[in-house]
């Protein structure tokens, strides 16, 4: 079972993976994650946004602001939206994390078997 740091690393891997596909803003990340996991994985905004800030401070992702244009908002009243993309450094980190994740999964598969996932005693 993963500890808190393991869960956090996993979420970092997931967020970097989603952003590596295409630039996204925070809310889009939460929606895409929920959709791709059939609602089984839910990244709360209270966790996501500080994580994005930390990833950005670490140079793994880069944020750029864009004005939201919607029919409901008048010109000049538009709110800003922050889009994130993975930096070159972030892509390296993602590759490292993926490699480590796959190695760990292969190890677990070798120990417990890839099909059943049951632990043999």
């Amino acid at each position: 079972m993963l500890g808190r740091s393991g869960q956090r690393d996993d979420m970092e891997l997931v967020v970097l993976s989603l952003l590596a596909e295409a630039p996204k803003y925070g809310y889009a990340i939460t929606k895409e994650l929920a959709a791709k996991s059939d609602g089984r994985v839910r990244l709360t905004p209270g966790v996501l946004y500080p994580m994005l800030k930390e990833l950005e401070a670490s140079g793994l992702i880069q944020g750029t602001w864009d004005e939201v244009k919607s029919e409901e908002e008048q010109p000049g009243e538009g709110r800003k939206r922050k889009w994130y993309r993975v930096t070159a450094k972030g892509k390296k980190r993602l590759a490292q994390r993926l490699a480590a994740h796959r190695a760990f999964r292969a190890l677990v598969d070798a120990l417990v078997g890839p099909e059943t996932g049951e632990v043999t005693r």
Binding site: T44, P45, G46, V47, Y49, P50, M51, K53, E54, A57
Partner: peptide
Amino acid sequence: ELGDAAELAARYARASKS
């Protein structure tokens, strides 16, 4: 869904001090 404001503020502080 954003949770307690004080906790969120603390998370931002930690995020700024990695």
